[in-house]
Design a protein around this nucleic acid. Structure first.
Length: 704
DNA sequence: TGTTGCTCCCTTTTT
DNA sequence: GGGAGCAACA
């Protein structure tokens, strides 16, 4: 038996050992939230809840796997019977079993991001929308707006009003496109990511029998990162956990201060309203921080204290000591890469590689650093940004498998067909129609002009004939595809070919092809786990959620990058950037390095541009950080006074009015009311959402 | 008519 | 570095 009382603090113990009924665990960063879930899983298993009755919904499959592994270690037994993964992966599994009625009993295929864009493009062309109109948004943006509208459950017009009012003239066309795109998916039995959620909700709501079976199966539900659920996910949680069979045994765990997915419809009202939705909810707060040293927490607390929304949360630890966070100001992003590499080499003397992470706002921000690390021979693993299954050659290979699974999978057919010279979009559509829908054209006549494609289709047919393990299917596909790679990718086919070998290993652990193909779209399966220990981690902040390292370096802390320049138009977006910064800082256990280069390379300007330091760095009181600055000789020198990045921030208002207020010098696009006219370089503006007055250097007023 | 090649532009975050 | 648009070619 595990000694729960000894291993946990009072609040954790209460959460772990709570009996039946709904529980909400509000857990600050580093407060042992994961520990609570792990022990909860063990506790449930020890108290007679069969493994197959437990459902663990997490933000990534990796998180689920890690928690199950740790609980298994505690119990000294495997926990393979517990279902764990993302809402989307869970939805896929359920829908695969209980096919929605409109599919007529036949399988569906999951679209990846590229398929979605291609499908929108197809519909756009079919409707003759936006031809020759440069102001018409690109397919990718349209996909983003449509998905956003669905996830936030708003109309396209409402979404555009909120975040892209310059596109409002196109609202009607985009709405029509949305309808066409939906028909496109229906006709071809394709599901996009959002369909998974809404179809699962429909299943639980409309299919009595399925709902009863699923509820009876999953009597105990745990949902991690609940602050980042959207409305559909909250309804799914409710549908799963309510009713006579379910018993309402649901435990939601989250932290509203770490909500960073509003852009895809996450709403912290879900976590705030949880007690109202589930009667008799027990609310448990985990407040003490076990992860970080106090100097790291001081930085995080400052960020949160300056938030417009009051979270009334101050992280504290009982552990004494710890180094101050470092604030480093390199001259450029190039020297930032060099200095960060040096720092990593220094840290490698004290910590194993997997205890060191570099975090950044967007995938491309790490390019310079990746090159520097490569040159220094420091291996790393990157999370976020482009993923394995998004590379062209991987998509090609998967397209063959998808076509074998679903002959109507148009995006897959288009990929396979486009491998042949002389076949473009028009021919693809004609071929597809001739082959799979009623069309006057005879497929034979069309295909006779393209014998290579005909051979491909015969090959796909051969894959379809009998069920084989996925690894055999992919071995056949690779054999079929390899000879063509040299002409398809003349510059780098050996590298790509090597990358494809991995797909064999990945597929080896799968028994069914459709599961493997879906997982590639839902989440890249891990590659060589063995090597993991020997690599440092590079990650977007979003992908770093829930993780922690001994040393964390945050790079590119400059205006327009972190916060993202897309987040300046609306106060709530800016606030989400702040929470993102909070999440980034609270990943660190002992060392936190903040890098704010004085210039970054800008492609559009074809050169390095001076940039201002991030407002999140400027607002940190000098006492909280130890400041280092790169001198012209390329060396780091300790700064005694406040680093003067960008321009000094001085209270500019009349005496008595401004000194206690947070003053932030920033360029803002958006609305605001000028409350006091000042010289152009110091304009004081009342900006809704910032919670205080703001000093602006440039102000582009886009008033209503 | 449809495909391919060239040039310009913008580059967030994820399932 | 990839997508979209335009112009030249088959």
């Amino acid at each position: 038996m595990i000694d729960y009382a000894k291993a946990l603090n009072e609040a954790q113990y209460a959460a772990v050992t709570s009996g039946d009924g709904p529980v909400l665990v509000v857990a600050g960063a580093g407060s042992g939230k994961t520990r609570a879930i792990v022990y909860r899983l063990a506790w449930l298993a020890e108290h007679g809840v069969p493994q197959e009755n437990i459902l663990l919904l997490t933000f990534t499959r990796k998180a689920a796997r890690e928690m199950l592994y740790r609980a298994g270690v505690l119990l000294q037994q495997g926990l393979a019977g517990i279902q764990g993964g993302t809402f989307h992966a869970f939805a896929f599994n359920m829908l695969r079993r209980w096919l929605p009625p409109h599919l007529d009993g036949r399988a569906f295929t999951l679209m990846d991001a590229g398929d979605i864009t291609a499908a929108i493009k197809h519909c756009k062309d079919a409707l003759h929308l936006g031809r020759g109109d440069r102001s018409f948004p690109k397919s990718q943006s349209i996909a983003a707006f449509l998905s956003k509208a669905r996830n936030k459950e708003l109309s396209v017009t409402e979404v555009l009003e909120r975040e892209a009012f310059h596109l409002l003239p196109h609202a009607e066309d985009i709405t029509r496109l949305g309808a066409a795109y939906e028909a496109y998916r229906r006709e071809r039995r394709l599901f996009d990511y959002d369909d998974l959620l809404f179809e699962l909700e429909a299943l639980l709501r409309d299919n009595e029998e399925a709902a009863r079976t699923i509820r009876r199966r999953f009597t105990h539900i745990l949902v991690d990162e609940y602050q980042d659920t959207n409305h559909a996910q909250a309804r799914i949680t409710r549908l799963l956990a309510s009713g006579n069979d379910g018993g309402g045994n649901v435990m939601a765990v989250g932290d509203e201060a770490q909500s960073i997915y509003a852009f895809r419809g996450a709403d912290i009202r879900n976590i705030l309203d949880f007690p109202a939705l589930f009667a008799n909810t027990r609310v448990i707060r985990l407040e003490e921080n076990y992860r970080s040293t106090q100097p790291v927490l001081d930085v995080a607390n400052t960020l949160l204290a300056n938030a417009a929304e009051s979270y009334r949360k101050t992280l504290f630890t009982k552990r004494a000591g710890g180094e101050k966070a470092r604030l480093i100001t390199p001259l450029s992003d190039m020297s930032q890469a060099r200095l960060a590499t040096l720092r990593i080499q220094e840290l490698l003397g004290a910590y194993p590689p997997h205890e060191i992470a570099v975090l950044f706002r967007a995938g491309f921000h790490s390019y310079h650093l990746e090159m520097a690390l490569h040159q220094a021979g420091i291996p790393f693993r990157k999370y976020g940004g482009l993923r394995y299954a998004e590379a062209a050659h991987v998509k090609d290979v998967i397209a063959f498998a998808r076509l074998a699974l679903n002959p109507m999978d148009m995006p897959a057919f288009a990929r396979v067909a486009a491998l042949h010279a002389g076949i473009g979009p028009k021919t693809i559509t004609r071929l597809y129609n001739a082959l799979l829908t009623d069309s006057a054209e005879s497929p034979d006549k069309l295909f006779i002009k393209h014998p290579g494609l005909l051979e491909d289709m015969r090959f796909v047919e051969s894959l379809r004939v009998r069920a084989r393990p996925p690894v055999d299917v992919f071995s056949a596909i690779l054999e079929h595809y390899f000879p063509r790679m040299e002409s398809l990718f003349p510059e780098d086919w050996p590298r790509r070919r090597q990358g494809l070998e991995e797909i064999m290993q990945m597929s080896a652990s799968y028994g069914e092809l459709d599961l493997f193909v879906a997982d590639l779209a839902l989440e890249s399966p891990e590659e060589d786990e063995k090597d993991e220990e020997n690599r440092i981690v590079l990650s977007t902040v979003h992908s770093a959620k829930g993780l922690e390292w001994s040393a964390v370096l945050i790079i590119d802390l400059v205006e327009d990058r972190f916060p993202s320049r897309h987040a300046l138009a609306r106060p709530e977006d800016f606030e989400e950037e702040r929470r993102l910064m909070y999440v980034a800082c609270t990943r660190a256990r002992r060392h936190l390095d903040l890098y704010a280069p004085a210039s970054v390379y800008n492609r559009a300007e074809r050169g390095s541009m001076h940039v201002n330091c991030s407002p999140f760095v400027r607002e940190l009181p000098p006492s909280l950080t130890e400041e280092w600055q790169e001198n012209l000789g390329g060396a780091l020198v300790r700064k005694k006074a406040r680093a003067d990045c960008g321009a000094p921030v001085k209270p500019a208002g009349p005496a008595g009015s401004g000194n206690s207020e947070r003053l932030c010098r920033h360029r803002i696009f958006g609305r605001g009311k000028i409350i006091q006219h000042l010289p152009p370089d110091k304009m004081q503006v009342d900006f809704p959402g910032f919670g205080s007055k703001v000093i602006l250097t440039e102000y582009l007023l886009m008033e209503d």
